[in-house]
Design a protein around this nucleic acid. Structure first.
Lengths: 144, 144
DNA sequence: TATTGTTATACTCTATAACTATA
DNA sequence: TATAGTTATAGAGTATAACAATA
């Protein structure tokens, strides 16, 4: 309780509010983009994850910060639509690897493109401003 | 399809990725903060909305971009916990106004404070940097 | 014994459609 | 007739607990 009990510096407060606004807008448009492909937000997130690299169910759950049992159903639905498939793991027969199919890779790619929405508001910023924004976001996230 | 089919300028691409990372982190920590108060994310969002101003069910739905029928259940649960109450509207007897109780206002306030998490990563930025960030976010969101 | 994925269960959120009471 | 809120329903996400197969 005590550590963050600082006086609510108005500047920081406003930045937090603005980030909240960006978060809301991003999420709304993300859900909408997913919906256009007949996917829920959670399905789209898993698909995006797998389009980067195949992964065991457990790891997907860890990355999405949810219970592994939930991933079963999400991958079931993606698999039923032919976007993802389950493969055995060479080294450990308990493990199942979820991997995107060619069609899944294509949908993930289209999804990424329709996610351009986030690019839209950025078009009002100059290259210099975007560079500043990038560096600030990196530092905010603790990226070196 | 055509309008946003621009070459994927790497700088903009990275900024979009970083914003996505911020969105994910914000959401996770928001859900966690709500959970500490025994609330779901949706309940916390409605409570925050009502802590600013009482509102008819319909308006809550519009602000949360969901169907009005969903608000019934969410307000039901908040009301069952004594955080919110339904009041008649003076001018239109069809309307029900949802309003926070004193306890609801208190929880909303605590929630806002525990939401300080978002302030944490900002502490690494100087005042000047936070000002730049604020102005960039404002422009991104189309705030004048 | 411990771990991986799954199933079963219960709760919540969500959209859709039909209902009621007002307007 | 149109609108505000609700109810009923179905699908999806979520956590928890228990299970089979494998380590």
């Amino acid at each position: 309780m005590t550590p963050s009990a600082r006086p609510p510096d108005p500047l920081t407060f406003e930045v937090v509010e603005l980030i909240g606004a960006v978060v809301n807008r991003y999420r709304e448009e993300y859900e909408e983009a997913a919906g256009k492909h007949g996917l829920t937000g959670a399905q789209a997130r898993v698909l995006r994850l797998l389009s980067i690299e195949a992964a065991p169910m457990r790891r997907i759950a860890r990355k999405l910060h949810c219970e592994p049992s939930n991933i079963t159903g999400i991958v079931d639905r993606l698999e039923a639509r032919g976007l993802v498939e389950r493969r055995p793991d060479a080294g450990d027969r308990r493990v199942k690897l979820a991997a995107v199919t060619d069609e899944g890779r294509e949908v993930a790619s289209q999804l990424r493109e329709s996610l351009d929405f986030a690019r839209e508001p950025l078009s009002d910023l100059s290259v210099e401003e975007r560079t500043v924004l990038r560096d600030l976001l990196r530092r905010m996230l603790g990226v070196d």
